[in-house]
């Protein structure tokens, strides 16, 4: 009898979890605006993945004799840039850079930030003070300025952009997780787990962390939008990925210099950023409402 009890509790827990998941997905998809945001995000992700199939030309193929062509001229859907490269293809390939940087930088920030937040909140005391003072210090830098400073030292390049934006993301995650840990660690089940002899690592990663996931997912989703804008901003300032790699920010940077001759360069690259970020934000808003309504990012 006693041996069947835990498994029946486990089955009940799994069922409860499944019901919760189903009601969460239903709640999320019922929110039409969030569903639209999800659709836009998936659409942009598909464009990024299938870029070689969607692009009509090679994104880096130059043809100076056909530079700054208007939309639709010579088979160039959106025209060409100042080097005669096909603008549509560059924007399509730019989606890859934006999404790679957006997701990777947030994962980077989330991994380090979560770890720091977990140990700061769980162990408290001097370790907490040391970590959170450092996070306060990092928070004192406007996000983009911190990324700019890091890029100035690290130099241009895709990996460096990810590191710079990732580091700037760490304090946000650390604060969110620490706040959650402070409330979770006082719960009775943590006391019980501890009294059963569980190690700190087990308590932290098997019991505390899963209870921090809802706000983490919401914050992480919204941070991807911020990371995409930051990557574009760094490229716009000439600090992002190295040329000739197509990035929305660098296309916009070039477009700014040819605003009168070829306004579509600046217009479409910026629209691509706006649509992607708007989609992620709409989805993030919906996620927040479904997962963590109390949270206000």
């Amino acid at each position: 009898m006693t041996s069947t009890q835990p498994s029946s509790i486990e089955t009940r827990e799994v069922k409860k979890k499944e019901i919760n998941e189903r009601s969460f997905i239903r709640k999320l998809l019922k929110n039409r605006i969030a569903a639209f945001g999800l659709f836009v995000t998936i659409f942009m992700t598909i464009i990024a993945i299938l870029a070689p199939l969607i692009a009509t030309h090679s994104p880096n193929e130059m043809d100076i004799t056909h530079s700054l062509l208007g939309a639709g001229v010579d088979g160039h859907l959106l025209g060409t840039d100042n080097y005669g490269r096909d603008l549509f293809s560059r924007i399509v390939y730019g989606a890859r850079i934006s999404l790679i940087v957006g997701v990777s930088a947030v994962v980077f920030g989330a991994v380090f930030g979560t770890f720091l937040g977990l140990i700061a909140g769980y162990f408290g005391g001097k370790l907490d003070s040391l970590i959170m003072r450092t996070m306060d210090g990092l928070f004192a830098f406007p996000f983009i300025l911190l990324a700019i400073t890091l890029m100035t030292v690290l130099g241009q390049g895709l990996v460096n952009v990810i590191i710079a934006i990732g580091v700037a993301n760490i304090p946000g995650f650390a604060r969110i997780v620490r706040g959650q840990v402070l409330s979770v660690k006082e719960e009775e089940f943590i006391e019980v787990t501890r009294s059963l002899g569980a190690t700190h690592g087990r308590i932290l990663f098997q019991h505390v962390l899963p209870n921090c996931l809802a706000p983490l997912i919401v914050y992480g989703t919204m941070s991807i939008a911020g990371a995409i804008i930051s990557e574009a901003a760094l490229s716009f300032l000439g600090l992002g990925v190295q040329p000739p790699t197509a990035s929305w920010g660098s296309i916009l940077k070039d477009g700014k210099d040819f605003l009168v001759l070829n306004p579509q360069m600046a217009t479409f690259s910026g629209l691509a950023i706006l649509i992607t970020v708007l989609g992620i934000n709409l989805f993030g808003d919906g996620l927040r409402d479904a997962l963590d309504p109390k949270m206000k990012v």
Partner: peptide, 18 residues
């Protein structure tokens, strides 16, 4: 306001100039 929080300001600035 949702468009406002999603807009890259460096693009908006360029468009306003245009």
């Amino acid at each position: 306001s949702l468009i406002g929080v999603s807009i890259p300001i460096f693009w908006l600035g360029v468009m306003l100039v245009l």
